[in-house]
């Protein structure tokens, strides 16, 4: 029997990877992680234009996940501030064009949090360097985001959703993230 199973595995043709899918429960977990990240992060006072200015979350690209984030943040107050969600559209058909656009970096830096979807790998590589030194929390959706200088990344691990952190990048930035959150982050190399 076991030999049969083995033979079946070895002989089965590798199927084409199907379209990426989003489970609504997973989307809600990820949105809740994002909210928790904000709760555990402190921004310097000068990161806000006014005492009562909103905390701005920038969502890059277009992703079904964004609808969940948008609705979860709606009407919510964190650190005594209202939360505003801003869509940062990736204009044009060529992603490369985005990176060169000077307006892109400015728009990123006007946010307190930017969320980078996993399916924009080139943007993913650019964002951390574009906001370096600014009080912006960068949140990604895969391990690679951490490798290219992102701060936090929400990742799916088989049937769970966990997150990883780049403590070094966070330490060098003007924002501070609670040590509790960093402690709860999954270790990078499993």
């Amino acid at each position: 029997m076991v030999a049969m199973l083995g033979a079946a595995v070895l002989s089965s043709p590798a199927p084409a990877p199907p379209a990426d899918r989003l489970d609504p429960t997973e989307a809600k977990l990820k949105a809740s992680y994002l909210l928790n990240f904000i709760r555990f992060t402190e921004w310097p006072a000068d990161a806000f234009e006014a005492k009562d200015a909103s905390l701005v979350i920038g969502l890059i690209g277009d992703d079904p996940m964004h609808e969940f984030i948008d609705r979860m943040m709606r009407g919510r107050r964190v650190h005594g501030r209202s939360v505003r969600v801003k869509r940062i559209r990736v204009e044009g058909t060529r992603v490369a064009a985005v990176e060169g656009s000077p307006g892109f970096a400015t728009r990123l830096r006007s946010c307190h949090v930017v969320v980078v979807p996993a399916d924009l790998p080139r943007v993913c590589r650019q964002v951390p360097s574009l906001v370096r030194g600014a009080p912006v929390l960068t949140v990604g959706e895969d391990r690679a985001f951490i490798d290219c200088g992102g701060m936090l990344s929400i990742i799916r691990r088989s049937n769970r959703v966990a997150f990883v952190a780049n403590a070094e990048v966070i330490r060098r930035s003007p924002i501070s993230v609670s040590s509790k959150l960093l402690r709860l982050a999954a270790s990078l190399s499993r």
Binding site: K28, N159, L181, L184
Partner: peptide, 30 residues
């Protein structure tokens, strides 16, 4: 995406919003 989003997905958003990080890590689907 909008066509495939069912309004019922959002009914329990507040419950998710109130989860702590430990809850989220403990949210084992298996």
């Amino acid at each position: 995406a909008a066509q495939f989003i069912d309004e019922s997905y959002f009914e329990d958003l507040d419950e998710f919003a109130n989860l702590t990080v430990e809850d989220l890590l403990d949210f084992r689907l298996d």
